[in-house]
Design a protein around this nucleic acid. Structure first.
Lengths: 211, 211
DNA sequence: GAGGCTAGTGACAGCCTCTGACAATTGACA
DNA sequence: TGTCAATTGTCAGAGGCTGTCACTAGCCTC
């Protein structure tokens, strides 16, 4: 981003992104039109579509950054680590460094608000789940390669990653519907839920009601 | 469905459903317009929207029947059964009786084709995942009630159901991308994957490469 | 069995998302 | 400064979806 042109482009994109998230989180995704976003930044509607593939695309622009970071974190885990342990550490790392990951684009506070908007907007939740599925496929291939198994012949990598992803989704959902929207809260929930999986799968929930 | 009016309505709805699924599975979901579906049944576009909330809605009309059957199957499982065992039996029952569930609306063969179309169409896959999430919430409440725990205080019901759902999704995906589209194949895959979960979570995939 | 009532329908207009085509503008660079 | 290329605005249009309104066909009562 050296030339004036590139800087201008960067600024337009960022302005569109912030305006969009601000509008989405305040008046709702469905009740925000693309014209409105473009108008807020004072560009034509056509220009908006030159920067983002669609209304949905801009809603996930920041999530995309965090997902990429997560994949990289997994890739960077030591190879001797057990797959699920690597995933666990990678997510927790992700939450720890969420500020550095996100703040270059938008304030973390806006990111967290958007996170909740996604979860409470059917159309966005659907897109979020589809995106998660795609990420899971990436991770499954990553882990399979690391463990030296064929991802298409052995279903276990995909199964493990899918189970892990399921726990993450339960966590997200509980955080969004709870009342503590702090960063610490979701980090805590993530760790706690990952610890609970074994106990949950046993299914004898009545005996040890220590929670 | 006694009066002539009601029979006519029923026939129109069914005709729209079959025409839509036929078009979706042959020329693709995105490349099929609502006008086309309406035209195939010789009604106005407006009439289509009186029977179905939208293009997406008609694509899931049959899935909705099978999901309802699944929820009922879970509800009907003996109360002493462990949660995950109840879910396992319910899905397998679902596949066994899929003919009776579906055939009243469309041929099973069309249903299975649509299943694959959903999985390979991003927009439909997203909707499918969102719908699955909703079903999982229902099941979680069901199991929690059965086991006598509070679904909002104890995350384990939701965790268990989410893990189960994750396995089902991996199964669906593998079936759709495979080459054996038979009913028996998906039933077999379901059982096999459910058996593999424990082994997958251990994460030591290299040692016993018996699969 | 005639007439009123109502559900179902078609026709039309309009909003919103998204895309293609073309012209105008603005920065880059010699 | 003048030329070139990138960026943008304007216009047109398809497709999903909704509201409105008048009309028709089935149903119900007398």
């Amino acid at each position: 981003m050296e030339t004036l042109r590139e800087r201008k482009k960067q600024r337009t994109r960022e302005a569109l992104l912030r305006a969009a998230l601000e509008l989405f989180t305040t008046q709702g995704y469905e009740h925000t039109t693309v014209d409105e976003i473009a108008e807020a930044v004072d560009v034509s509607q056509r220009t908006f579509f030159r920067y983002f593939a669609g209304k949905e695309d801009v809603a996930f622009a920041v999530q995309e950054m965090t997902e990429a970071r997560f994949v990289e974190a997994v890739r960077a885990r030591p190879p001797h680590e057990a797959p699920l342990e690597a995933l666990r550490q990678a997510v927790l790392e992700g939450w720890d460094g969420i500020r550095e990951t996100v703040e270059s684009a938008v304030p973390v506070e806006l990111y967290l608000r958007m996170y909740r908007t996604i979860e409470s907007t059917p159309a966005l939740l659907a897109a979020h789940l589809r995106r998660s599925a795609a990420t899971e496929e990436t991770i499954a291939r990553l882990l399979a390669g690391r463990e030296g198994v064929d991802v298409d012949a052995d279903p276990r990598p995909r199964l493990a990653v899918a189970v892990f992803g399921a726990v993450i989704r339960v966590t997200e959902r509980q955080w969004c519907t709870g009342d503590d929207f702090s960063l610490e809260a979701i980090r805590q929930l993530t760790a706690s839920h990952l610890d609970l999986v074994d106990s949950a799968l046993i299914g004898n929930w009545r005996s040890n009601q220590d929670r």
